[in-house]
């Protein structure tokens, strides 16, 4: 009962915020659908008829969307809350700061998953990358894992950003850099060796390996990326637990 209550509260608050977010539908449609679909079609066209490349571009588009939303939206919402002093109102409530952080992140999750579904549908229709229902379910589970494994990045930027402008800039820079330049649109194996080790330190690389494995059906090698992503998720939870405090010492 004690554990269930904050979960129910988080879901309830996220749902309310999600409904409010839908009132700004124009920018949301651009961010969640037009941008990733545009990238998918543009790069997919450049890849010609190479199915492996198109599959990797699909993986990249889904991951970029997930990472960008998780990092930038969380950081920007925190910055906005601090500027509008809503953060102080949150602090005055008897809830755990985890509820605050999770409700911000979860607010964007439904549209992130819907965006991923749209990308998968488009890839099926235009590039012939079809998925069974089971594979589709596994893709969404993998996406949730990627979502959890990048949870803390936006939070850290939001928590330590010294001004809203700095937070927004840093969040966009980090999201874009790590989305575009991490090996999500291309396999990690094409990166020269010293850099490859660096790439393995970033959760999206493992997310890319996991998603590519699920979509291509090579399920045998997926245990390692799943393990690493779970590890990243636990690491963030531990770090957030240590850093996230309503009360300054």
């Amino acid at each position: 009962m004690r554990l269930w209550r904050p979960v129910a509260l988080t879901v309830d608050v996220s749902w309310l915020q999600f409904r409010n977010a839908l009132r700004d539908l124009g920018p949301l449609l651009m961010f969640f659908f037009l941008l990733p679909l545009g990238i998918l079609f543009f790069l997919g066209h450049l890849a010609g008829g190479n199915l492996a490349s198109q599959r990797q571009i699909l993986v990249g588009s889904i991951l970029l969307e997930t990472a960008l939303v998780n990092i930038t939206a969380t950081a920007e919402q925190m910055a906005q809350d601090k500027q509008s002093r809503m953060y102080d109102l949150w602090v005055s409530t008897p809830v755990s700061p985890f509820v605050y952080l999770l409700s911000i992140s979860l607010t964007n999750l439904p549209l992130t998953l819907l965006s991923a579904g749209t990308l998968l549908l488009a890839a099926d229709l235009f590039f012939g990358i079809g998925l069974s229902l089971v594979a589709l379910a596994v893709v969404f589970l993998a996406l949730l894992l990627v979502f959890c494994s990048t949870l803390g990045v936006g939070f850290l930027i939001g928590a330590y950003g010294w001004s809203p402008r700095a937070t927004n800039t840093l969040a966009n820079f980090t999201g874009s850099m790590l989305g575009f330049f991490a090996p999500v649109y291309y396999p990690v194996t094409i990166i020269p060796l010293p850099w490859r080790y660096l790439a393995y330190g970033w959760p999206l690389t493992w997310g890319s390996i996991l998603l590519d494995g699920v979509i291509s059906g090579t399920n045998g090698s997926l245990l390692l990326p799943v393990g690493v992503l779970v590890g990243f998720s636990l690491l963030w939870i531990l770090l957030i637990g240590r850093v996230l405090r309503w009360r300054d010492p």
């Binding site: 309830d12 409010n20 809830v95």
Partner: peptide, 19 residues
């Protein structure tokens, strides 16, 4: 302090009542 502009008054107060 500025409340969330995208909420209705009732939704906003309800959210904090739950919190």
């Amino acid at each position: 302090g500025t409340p969330y502009g995208g909420c209705t008054v009732r939704e906003f107060v309800r959210m904090f009542a739950r919190l």
